[in-house]
């Protein structure tokens, strides 16, 4: 289609004030542009994105090959930061922690599908009430809910350890014991992200034609059989989407870890995530070059994981 500038429209089209049938339009010229108007629309965003995102990305790439001097200047150090990073046990541990957290969050996706299925039953009463209960953790401020979970996990007077004590289990100091800490954070992450899966998968469930289920019922298929043979295959594209987003978000673990563990936690060094290490190096230790290298590592790892997910989708995702 052709958009013209205001003046041109006024001159050439003014006499025509009745709707013209679509077929009566002049033939499109592929080479015609819309003058300066598009730039008015696009330029603010384009400049903002170039200035605040694209240029910083280039700069981070450069920074990762530099070292911040004692007086703030940058000195080119080649691959030093990357070599340090690969030998840094804390970074390796952070990668493992991030993976553990991500896997725990991913384990929530099947639960989210079951919950979405429950809440989307035809004719269910109070469905929107349940839906609110389910998606509250997703929209609540992570920092705020993290503080509640700190209380629940508290080793001395937390309600979790009190419940465990009822069945004779002596619960650990969840958030300050290495190993337990990242799992504790992971459980909160799963709880908080279930709502996202429920919303996306719920939308997919609504698009499944009831005829499939009617036919299956006539054939005597059980509810479970219907779930595994109709529901699951038909929502695989949405499952794939939720998986991709969950992995990307999982690798961004920061808020919950920061707020659940606090800055003075004895288990913090063994429980850091990649983003936490990045934040700490960049803005607390002020080692911007090293932090930039860690940022590049996060980029590469997410890239690799996402690439493999797209490779593997052929094996399990059904596009109708």
């Amino acid at each position: 289609m052709t958009l013209r500038t205001g003046s041109t429209v006024g001159e050439s089209r003014a006499p025509v004030d009745r709707p013209v049938p679509v077929s009566a339009r002049p033939p499109k010229k592929q080479t015609s542009f819309d003058g300066y108007w598009p730039w008015l629309f696009v330029l603010p965003t384009l400049l903002g994105v170039l200035g605040f995102y694209i240029w910083p990305i280039v700069q981070t790439g450069y920074l990762s090959f530099t070292e911040t001097g004692p007086f703030g200047g940058e000195e080119f150090v080649g691959l030093d930061n990357y070599q340090t990073m690969l030998a840094d046990g804390n970074v390796g541990q952070a990668l493992i922690n991030t993976l553990i957290y991500t896997v725990i969050v991913l384990a929530g996706i099947p639960i989210a599908l079951l919950m979405a299925n429950l809440v989307n039953q035809p004719g269910l009463r109070f469905a929107s009430f349940y839906r609110v209960l389910f998606f509250m953790p997703y929209i609540a401020m992570p920092t705020a809910v993290a503080l509640v979970w700190r209380m629940i996990y508290n080793g001395d007077f937390g309600i979790l350890n009190w419940m465990l004590s009822l069945v004779g289990i002596d619960g650990p100091y969840w958030t300050s014991t290495p190993g337990f800490a990242i799992v504790s954070v992971g459980i909160v992450g799963m709880w908080a992200s279930l709502g996202f899966g429920i919303i996306i998968l719920g939308a997919a469930l609504k698009n499944i034609s009831p005829e499939y289920y009617e036919a299956a019922q006539l054939d005597g298929a059980t509810t479970w059989k219907q779930f595994t043979s109709i529901t699951v295959p038909l929502v695989t594209p949405s499952l794939f989407f939720v998986t991709i987003i969950s992995v990307i978000n999982g690798f961004q673990l920061f808020d919950l870890l920061y707020a659940i563990m606090g800055q003075y936690n004895p288990a913090l060094v063994q429980s850091q995530s990649l983003v936490y290490i990045f934040y700490n190096q960049a803005f607390i230790q002020n080692d911007k070059g090293y932090a930039a290298a860690i940022g590049m590592l996060i980029l590469v790892v997410i890239g690799i994981v996402t690439f493999f997910q797209f490779q593997m989708q052929k094996k399990w995702v059904n596009y109708v």
Partner: peptide
């Protein structure tokens, strides 16, 4: 394409220069 490319990049890759 340039604008959408930043969707594929984690924030850590532009955070320091943004600061």
């Amino acid at each position: 394409g340039v604008i959408l490319s930043i969707l594929m990049v984690p924030p850590q890759v532009y955070l320091i220069p943004q600061f």
